[in-house]
Simulated assay, not measured.
Amino acid sequence: MDYQQMGQSLKAISDENRMLILKYLSKEALCICEFTELLDMSQPAISQHMRKLKQAQWICEEKRGRWTIWSLNKEHGLFDVLVTLLAMLPEPERTVESLIAEGKKVNCT
Protein backbone atom coordinates (compact mmCIF):
# COMPACT_ATOMS: atom_id res chain seq x y z
CA MET A 1 0.00 0.00 0.00
CA ASP A 2 1.40 3.41 -0.95
CA TYR A 3 0.61 6.91 0.36
CA GLN A 4 -2.07 7.54 -2.23
CA GLN A 5 -3.85 4.23 -1.55
CA MET A 6 -3.67 4.84 2.20
CA GLY A 7 -5.10 8.35 1.76
CA GLN A 8 -7.95 7.07 -0.44
CA SER A 9 -8.77 4.29 2.02
CA LEU A 10 -8.88 6.63 4.99
CA LYS A 11 -10.82 9.29 3.10
CA ALA A 12 -13.50 6.73 2.24
CA ILE A 13 -14.17 6.05 5.93
CA SER A 14 -14.01 9.70 7.00
CA ASP A 15 -17.78 10.19 6.75
CA GLU A 16 -19.99 9.54 9.79
CA ASN A 17 -22.59 7.60 7.77
CA ARG A 18 -19.92 5.42 6.18
CA MET A 19 -18.44 4.73 9.62
CA LEU A 20 -21.90 3.66 10.79
CA ILE A 21 -22.27 1.39 7.76
CA LEU A 22 -18.92 -0.21 8.52
CA LYS A 23 -19.84 -0.57 12.21
CA TYR A 24 -23.03 -2.42 11.23
CA LEU A 25 -21.11 -4.60 8.78
CA SER A 26 -18.61 -5.47 11.50
CA LYS A 27 -21.48 -7.37 13.15
CA GLU A 28 -23.09 -9.02 10.11
CA ALA A 29 -23.62 -8.81 6.35
CA LEU A 30 -26.58 -6.62 5.39
CA CYS A 31 -28.65 -5.46 2.43
CA ILE A 32 -29.13 -1.80 1.48
CA CYS A 33 -32.81 -2.05 2.38
CA GLU A 34 -31.77 -2.75 5.97
CA PHE A 35 -29.48 0.27 5.97
CA THR A 36 -32.38 2.49 4.87
CA GLU A 37 -34.15 1.55 8.11
CA LEU A 38 -31.06 1.64 10.32
CA LEU A 39 -29.80 5.01 9.08
CA ASP A 40 -33.15 6.57 8.11
CA MET A 41 -31.75 7.44 4.67
CA SER A 42 -32.92 6.89 1.13
CA GLN A 43 -31.72 3.94 -0.90
CA PRO A 44 -29.92 6.18 -3.44
CA ALA A 45 -28.05 7.98 -0.64
CA ILE A 46 -26.95 4.68 0.88
CA SER A 47 -25.94 3.39 -2.56
CA GLN A 48 -23.62 6.38 -2.96
CA HIS A 49 -21.95 5.60 0.36
CA MET A 50 -21.63 1.95 -0.63
CA ARG A 51 -20.07 2.96 -3.95
CA LYS A 52 -17.37 4.93 -2.16
CA LEU A 53 -16.67 2.14 0.29
CA LYS A 54 -16.53 -0.40 -2.53
CA GLN A 55 -14.15 1.78 -4.58
CA ALA A 56 -11.84 1.91 -1.56
CA GLN A 57 -12.23 -1.89 -1.29
CA TRP A 58 -13.53 -1.74 2.30
CA ILE A 59 -16.61 -3.81 1.45
CA CYS A 60 -17.58 -6.77 -0.71
CA GLU A 61 -20.86 -7.53 -2.39
CA GLU A 62 -22.58 -10.84 -2.93
CA LYS A 63 -25.52 -11.16 -5.30
CA ARG A 64 -28.41 -13.25 -3.99
CA GLY A 65 -31.08 -13.21 -6.65
CA ARG A 66 -32.14 -9.60 -7.04
CA TRP A 67 -30.55 -8.61 -3.71
CA THR A 68 -27.01 -7.49 -2.97
CA ILE A 69 -25.64 -8.43 0.42
CA TRP A 70 -22.72 -6.34 1.69
CA SER A 71 -19.94 -7.39 4.06
CA LEU A 72 -16.56 -6.14 5.20
CA ASN A 73 -13.60 -7.01 2.98
CA LYS A 74 -11.40 -9.06 5.30
CA GLU A 75 -8.65 -9.01 2.67
CA HIS A 76 -8.22 -5.21 2.81
CA GLY A 77 -4.68 -4.24 3.83
CA LEU A 78 -6.01 -2.12 6.70
CA PHE A 79 -8.72 -4.53 7.86
CA ASP A 80 -7.19 -5.03 11.32
CA VAL A 81 -6.83 -1.26 11.73
CA LEU A 82 -10.47 -0.77 10.69
CA VAL A 83 -11.72 -3.36 13.17
CA THR A 84 -9.71 -1.68 15.94
CA LEU A 85 -11.11 1.75 15.05
CA LEU A 86 -14.68 0.46 14.84
CA ALA A 87 -14.33 -1.19 18.26
CA MET A 88 -13.57 2.26 19.72
CA LEU A 89 -16.90 3.64 18.51
CA PRO A 90 -20.07 3.35 20.59
CA GLU A 91 -22.78 1.02 19.42
CA PRO A 92 -25.32 2.72 17.12
CA GLU A 93 -28.69 3.69 18.59
CA ARG A 94 -30.56 1.56 16.05
CA THR A 95 -29.56 -2.07 15.86
CA VAL A 96 -30.48 -5.00 13.69
CA GLU A 97 -32.10 -6.46 16.81
CA SER A 98 -34.33 -3.37 17.08
CA LEU A 99 -35.37 -3.89 13.44
CA ILE A 100 -36.34 -7.46 14.28
CA ALA A 101 -38.30 -6.32 17.34
CA GLU A 102 -40.12 -3.71 15.23
CA GLY A 103 -40.84 -6.23 12.47
CA LYS A 104 -38.76 -4.20 10.01
CA LYS A 105 -35.93 -6.66 9.42
CA VAL A 106 -35.96 -7.61 5.76
CA ASN A 107 -35.04 -11.11 4.67
CA CYS A 108 -33.11 -10.45 1.46
CA THR A 109 -32.53 -14.00 0.31
Rank of each mutant, 00 (worst) to 15 (best):
residue 7 G to M: 14
residue 103 G to W: 04
residue 26 S to T: 00
residue 77 G to I: 14
residue 96 V to F: 00
residue 26 S to V: 01
residue 8 Q to K: 12
residue 65 G to Q: 06
residue 104 K to D: 02
residue 19 M to S: 05
residue 56 A to V: 01
residue 34 E to N: 05
residue 64 R to F: 02
residue 96 V to S: 02
residue 15 D to S: 11
residue 37 E to F: 03
residue 16 E to Y: 08
residue 94 R to C: 05
residue 86 L to Q: 08
residue 87 A to L: 09
residue 33 C to D: 11
residue 69 I to L: 09
residue 52 K to I: 07
residue 58 W to F: 07
residue 74 K to C: 10
residue 22 L to V: 02
residue 85 L to Q: 08
residue 89 L to Y: 09
residue 37 E to D: 12
residue 47 S to C: 12
residue 4 Q to W: 03
residue 60 C to E: 14
residue 101 A to R: 08
residue 13 I to C: 10
residue 55 Q to C: 06
residue 46 I to N: 03
residue 4 Q to H: 05
residue 25 L to E: 02
residue 62 E to W: 00
residue 81 V to C: 11
residue 76 H to Y: 12
residue 61 E to W: 00
residue 69 I to N: 00
residue 3 Y to E: 15
residue 46 I to R: 00
residue 78 L to I: 09
residue 100 I to F: 06
residue 74 K to W: 13
residue 75 E to M: 09
residue 52 K to W: 12
residue 26 S to P: 02
residue 71 S to V: 00
residue 107 N to P: 06
residue 18 R to M: 04
residue 77 G to K: 12
residue 14 S to M: 09
residue 82 L to T: 04
residue 53 L to P: 03
residue 42 S to E: 10
residue 20 L to S: 06
residue 73 N to K: 04
residue 21 I to K: 01
residue 31 C to N: 10
residue 67 W to I: 01
residue 15 D to E: 13
residue 17 N to F: 10
residue 103 G to A: 09
residue 65 G to F: 02
residue 12 A to D: 11
residue 22 L to Y: 07
residue 71 S to R: 05
residue 70 W to H: 02
residue 48 Q to H: 15
residue 8 Q to T: 11
residue 57 Q to D: 14
residue 29 A to V: 10
residue 84 T to I: 12
residue 74 K to V: 07
residue 10 L to Q: 04
residue 34 E to K: 00
residue 58 W to L: 05
residue 10 L to P: 01
residue 55 Q to H: 08
